[in-house]
Design a protein around this nucleic acid. Structure first.
Length: 115
DNA sequence: CACGTGACCCTAT
DNA sequence: TATAGGGCCACGT
């Protein structure tokens, strides 16, 4: 049973986008977090895919540390090889399979200020 | 209106 | 740890 709305109004979509950008801007250097976690934090647990869409298509998102966002197993964004370079420059370590070592760099903010 | 397509996630195997 | 299958939701065609 979901205790959250399952569809966004345009106004909610704008708020969601702002929350996502706000959260991403708070990821510390050398740490990473996941799409799903960001979505849940913004109050829309089932919208992890929308987080990726937001970062991809929102103008100005490239000025945020969006390279610190990976999926749940630490895989980097497809077609964006530079992401790995940026992370490595911050000291993030990768495993032999090409995934970020999540057990070491996952960032889980307790309760970022939103709204 | 019906499909296909993702910077995704969960569970089972 | 790696794969496979199903679920999910906004968008374009």
């Amino acid at each position: 049973m979901k205790d959250y709305p399952d569809r966004m109004t345009p106004a909610q979509a704008r708020m969601f986008r702002d929350d996502v950008l706000n959260i991403v801007s708070q990821i510390p250097r050398g740490r990473v977090t996941t799409y799903g976690y960001i979505a849940a934090l913004a109050g829309w647990p089932s919208h992890s895919r929308m987080v990726g869409r937001t970062l991809r298509y929102t103008p100005g998102a490239e000025q945020l540390p969006c390279h610190r966002v990976v999926n749940q197993v630490g895989r980097t964004a497809p077609g964006w090889s530079r992401q790995r370079t940026l992370l490595e420059e911050e000291g993030v370590t990768f495993k032999a399979n090409g995934h970020v070592d999540m057990s070491r760099h996952l960032w889980e903010p307790s309760d970022p200020f939103l709204r």
